[in-house]
Design a protein around this nucleic acid. Structure first.
Lengths: 377, 377
DNA sequence: CAGTTCATCTTGTACGTACATTTATTATAA
DNA sequence: TTATAATAAATGTACGTACAAGATGAACTG
């Protein structure tokens, strides 16, 4: 124990124990210590290195070496030194969710996080079960895609508990309005507006809108749909709005659309705005069976710009959804939140902000220009 | 992470994890490591020092540096009573993989397991990185979808180390032949046979086969394709076989098919067997652009019975893939293996066996009967 | 006054040297 | 053959240098 670096070590350690150095206080720099103890920098670094690995000090490049807060260390949890993130999603396999998950997973694993995935199957009971499980373990952060975001959430208590335990979480695709969480979402209302606007500008007057209304996306897209009609002063026939929920997604929209299109009324619709591409593709089938040509007889516009929009014989005009970019941004945001939490001196984590994507439209061949003066390509 | 001492650290750690260094075995001396990595002793000591403090190595002055025995350390860790399963897949978001993952996730979470997901993006380097991560933690079992299963695997050492540490693992969709692991797979050869057989029985004589050959599925499906031709004594034109790998999947098959179909040869193909639905849908596009009608001019058959097979205007005849059932069965199998391991008295875990699904065909409207005597529906 | 640049201080990485201490092997002597 | 001593080899301590990279505050600029 009579080595030089051990003497330095013991000297610093005593000053911590007797309270000369208080937690988060900066200790002398390496060059100062060199002079104080008349040793080389190598020896100082050896001593400090040992004290860092045993949890007495921590170093910050550029700033200095600081006394650690050993009371916080007593939580003793993070033995494994393993960084964990949970992703809670409604569905794992359906539609665009895999792309979102993939984007998040790639970015998180790049940053050394391990990703655990849970799916609620859009059921609040499952969501509750998952949140209980997550709260009983130690996760560093959580990315949540809300379940039935249009309805009020019965599991608010669990989310508040996350905040109490200061576990960072963010919401993607939608959010529970009551919580006002940090979120990564699209401007869905504008997206819905753009869907309708596109058809209106092409000269369509009678437009059917078909929206899922048990999540936030659907209700906001519908809101945008209505707004566009008001904005362009197009009267909107209430009959032209079809709403459905998750359970009805393979039945009600199809039936309602067939009803609308087979009755012989004078002002038959020429446009169809769909909640998403999945629905649009399904309705394309219905139209084909009813000998309605797209886009000659009916223009149809989807949402999400999913892979589905390019597999059919009629390529869908659609609203672009960031998908994997959204996943990556969600990952970045949660990583920022976690590091903001760790750097305790900077309590101001309000730097981390929500992201809202402005939608964009991709025009393919499913929408037809009705304006006589315009030259269609 | 690209610092020299980190590279040395990772290299040594890899050799511990993949079993090159066994517990209490002496590793290379510092001077040897200096030569091996062409770095200074200081750097070597930095790397080794880190590995010592994190418990991977221990040093004995005068004798050398030795691999630590982590098994003693592992036992005390499992206090958390948390059951963990890792799923390693090639892709998270593409095609049928989400369905498989979902099936496995639902069954595993029902049984109280937490699921961590890793994706290799079909790259052996990533697979290595993931296996290292998994081996340095404690997982109760692993479900693996092999990366480039048609090629020999450079990470065999890691899999053998899994066995040495008696961590149960199974493979789905394909398997590394060298390992002869417990697996949950389709009878891909029979599937390929049935694809060709279906067209042959419909009277097709000239059939193009298009197969991906960097995974086991593709090579076996092609084998079945050839077998069917031999069995039904249909001569097979070598020109009619198109092979490609993952990187070429959006280019080569399209070009080769166009070449085959645009040249005016007397025995033009009337049938097209596709590696999977994803390819079939893509090729449907190519055919449409070349004014080739399906199934009137060309019958086409896919594989996997994915959602894609029903979205296009021509509904695809396809081979049924169990997808989420495969995921569920994989989950059940790994659960069985874990409980068989726990019940130590019954060392005979040979009760748990591989599952092979016999393929089935679903006939839709993309294949046409050429037999004059048969009445087509 | 706000924003930017730059010098300076801090820790991080990497190279070199020298000698000390401990252990294992080999050679030597009883 | 056995005990001892010399030797070699391994890690441990300690010195030095140089430059990289991050953080900070002062000087500068628009």
């Amino acid at each position: 124990m009579e080595t030089k670096y051990n003497m330095v070590k013991k000297a610093i350690k005593s000053k911590i124990i007797d309270g000369t150095f208080t937690p988060h206080q900066k200790i002398s720099s390496e060059s100062e210590l060199m002079k104080q103890f008349d040793v080389s920098r190598h020896t100082v670094r050896l001593a400090i290195g040992d004290l860092v690995t045993t949890g007495w000090l921590y170093r910050e490049q550029g700033s200095g070496t600081f006394c650690a807060d050993r009371s916080a260390l007593d939580t003793k949890q993070n033995v494994s030194n393993q960084k964990n993130i949970a992703i809670i999603t409604t569905y794992i396999s359906d539609y665009i969710f895999p792309s979102i998950i993939r984007g998040a997973e790639s970015r998180l694993s790049e940053n050394g996080y391990q990703v655990s995935i849970f799916s609620t199957n859009n059921d609040h009971e499952n969501e509750k079960r998952i949140l209980e499980k997550i709260l009983s373990q130690q996760f560093d952060g959580i990315i949540i895609e809300p379940t039935k975001s249009a309805y009020s959430n019965p599991n608010i208590g669990y989310y508040l508990n996350l905040e109490r335990q200061s576990i960072p979480y963010i919401m993607i695709n939608a959010y529970y309005d009551e919580l006002e969480p940090i979120s990564v979402v699209m401007d869905e209302e504008k997206g819905g507006f753009m869907q309708a606007e596109h058809l209106i500008k092409l000269g369509h007057k009678e437009i059917i809108g078909c929206f899922k209304t048990d999540d936030m996306q659907g209700t906001k897209r519908m809101k945008g749909f209505l707004k566009a009609h008001r904005h362009y002063k197009i009267p909107l026939n209430p009959k032209n709005i079809i709403t459905y929920n998750t359970l009805e997604k393979w039945s009600k929209p199809i039936q309602e659309l067939e009803k609308l299109l087979t009755t012989n009324n004078p002002d038959k619709a020429t446009g169809l705005v769909c909640y998403n591409d999945e629905l649009a593709i399904k309705l394309l089938d219905v139209l084909r069976l009813n000998n309605i040509r797209v886009p000659e007889d009916l223009s149809i516009i989807g949402y999400d710009d999913s892979t589905l929009s390019e597999v059919s014989e009629v390529k869908l005009t659609s609203i672009i959804h960031p998908k994997s970019q959204m996943g990556r941004d969600a990952a970045n945001t949660i990583i920022d939140l976690i590091s903001a939490k760790i750097s305790t001196k900077n309590k101001d984590s309000s730097q981390v902000q929500s992201i809202v994507y402005s939608p964009d439209i991709v025009i393919r061949s499913s929408t037809k220009d009705l304006n006589p003066e315009t030259i269609t390509s």
